[in-house]
């Protein structure tokens, strides 16, 4: 593609000290993400995939290198806030605000950050709830919703800010198996609509169906990347072969 990348990760490294020594979470990672791409990141735990994702919206800091999102570098506070407004994130543990209803969860950031009026925010919220398939749960509290419903509300909450990029950090890992499909369906729909998505996930089915690129990370660096079909059936590196052999069982 000849367009400019919407996310540019340039030689990013991150380390932190533990009592056991220095841990390198990211080693000189470079990545280019183009608009409307759907990228799946897989790898063993501790490989840095979540860290990379969280660096993109500055939930984690990095020690060297640069990340440029939509032309904005992640350096000053103002820029970071601008970037966060363009990037939506969905977490493994949903992180819905338990003291607000589903509708209020979606409206809160719209009103506080985007300064939309109450009427406008509620309209958008209801539309998004309908889009993710649970319009009837608008007045339910997160404690009254199932895991799949909570995650869908979380996706709607992120979408309400009308981001250009959506980050998914293992969105279905904390769900019971029967609820995974409903969340993946929403994500597939988003991908079909042309949203730029970075998904850290073990769901191979989703990767094969929607991802335009798959990335394999191990020990803080990108080992392999490419088209999901070929990558999963014919991995090049040893490490990826070992990893795939461990997970593609069920």
């Amino acid at each position: 593609m000849a367009e400019t990348p919407i996310i540019l990760v340039q030689n990013v490294s991150k380390h932190f000290r533990t009592p056991r020594g220095v841990v390198h979470a990211l080693r000189n990672v470079s990545l280019e993400v183009y608009p409307r791409e759907v990228i799946t990141i897989i790898g063993p735990s501790g490989s840095g995939k979540s860290t990379l994702l969280r660096c993109i919206n500055r939930l984690e800091t990095f020690d060297s290198g640069a990340i440029i999102v939509d032309g904005i570098a992640l350096d000053t506070a103002a820029n970071i806030n601008r970037v966060r407004a363009e990037v939506g994130m969905v977490f493994q543990s949903f992180n819905l605000f338990p003291n607000y209803t589903a509708l209020e969860n979606i409206c809160l950031a719209q009103r506080v950050v985007r300064k939309r009026s109450r009427k406008e925010a509620i309209e958008i919220a209801r539309a998004l709830l309908a889009k993710v398939g649970i319009p009837e749960k608008a007045d339910a509290y997160p404690g009254q919703l199932s895991g799949g419903q909570q995650q869908r509300v979380a996706i709607a909450r992120a979408l309400a800010m009308q981001p250009k990029i959506m980050l998914f950090d293992e969105p279905t890992s904390a769900l019971d198996p029967e609820m995974i499909k409903e969340v993946l369906d929403v994500m597939l729909q988003l991908a079909a609509e042309g949203m730029t998505m970075l998904v850290v996930s073990h769901e191979m089915g989703f990767a094969r169906a929607a991802a335009s690129r798959a990335i394999f990370m191990d020990q803080g660096e990108i080992v392999e990347q490419g088209d999901p079909q070929t990558l999963f059936t014919a991995p090049q590196s040893e490490r990826m072969k070992i990893f795939l052999s461990k997970i593609i069982k069920h």
Partner: peptide, 25 residues
Amino acid sequence: RGQMEAARSLGMSYLQAMRYIILPQ
């Protein structure tokens, strides 16, 4: 921590997150 992270990733400032999310809880 996730509550603060979710609030910050939505673009809320630290004080906004405290006022609407953390302190009420």
